[in-house]
Amino acid sequence: MSTTTTRVEESRRRALSGGKRLVALVGRVRELGLIVVLLAIVALVGLQTPRFLTPGNFEQILLSIAILAIVAVGETMVILTRNVDLSVGSTVGMTAFVCADVLKNHPQTPVILIVLLGCALGAVLGAVNGLIVALGRVPAIVATLGTLYLYRGLDSYIAGGTQVSAYDVPDSFLSLATTHILGVPALIVFAAAIALIFAYLLRATRTGRELYALGSNPEAARLAGLRAERLIFLTFLLCGLLSGFAGVLWGARFATVDSGAATGLELQVIAAVVVGGVNIFGGSGTILGAMLGAIVLGTIDNALTLLKLSQFWLQAIDGAAILAAVTLDALITRWLQRRLRSGRQR
């Protein structure tokens, strides 16, 4: 009896430590994979066009995705809970226009107030999404498809065909996007700070972990006493708020804003999140991953421009990247499940 028990336990222990290593590895594989892909692109394109490899160009890449990345942080949280927010592009567009328009009419408004206004407006729009999804129990994809058009329509109504241009707003506002903090463009600093803060919160707070739990198994979350409606509302609210902030930055960066600003941004954001390994069905993925996803797509974008390829290629390659990411994700999950199963057989 004792010898067999020891032997069984021995093999079990070995399976355990093997499993541990495996999981630790795979946990990093998605992000590592993205970094490998990134390096591959950099190396390939760098050989073709030396200009690609300059620090100035890397800064350019990060600048080009900074605003998108801020929205992607919010979108990641929404997607983690098994929902999706399609209205972020419209939210960014509306806040961008409203903020710029207020400044046009009241040039003396302090910039900090404008930032707060943008965040508040975004939060309200996000809260509306949250109420419809959490309380109205409307599937998020339908609810936010509705508000995508609703918010854009409101934006057009407010704009009434006008546009705000760089001459209409004070330089202090524009400098939000052009100033540097410790030699780094402020936009990049904002995006990095927001990503770090939320990545930390997702890891260190109960609420953060509960978002994962809810997305992983809503039924189990209910049995564990988690308040699903609250959590869902909160993620939409935060996603709206971050989109609002992104809208302010959009206004400052592009200076010329009309009611069509940031149209289609939602798809770029979701693409970045999904390519970054966040499971579209909720429950797994990280903000770090989403950021890497944004950087990979931004790098591809930049490389194609430098290689003077047409816009058509850009979209096709973005599409291919999404498909590859999702397929890879499914394959990894299935493979991991099989490996863990067989490792645990007794």
Binding site: R206, S216, L226
Partner: peptide, 24 residues
Amino acid sequence: LFPDLDVAENVFMGHQPRDRLGRI
């Protein structure tokens, strides 16, 4: 249970031990 989360998180979901700052 929550398939994406590890054993420990599954055990403590909703009542994780926290430090003085409220962090897990």
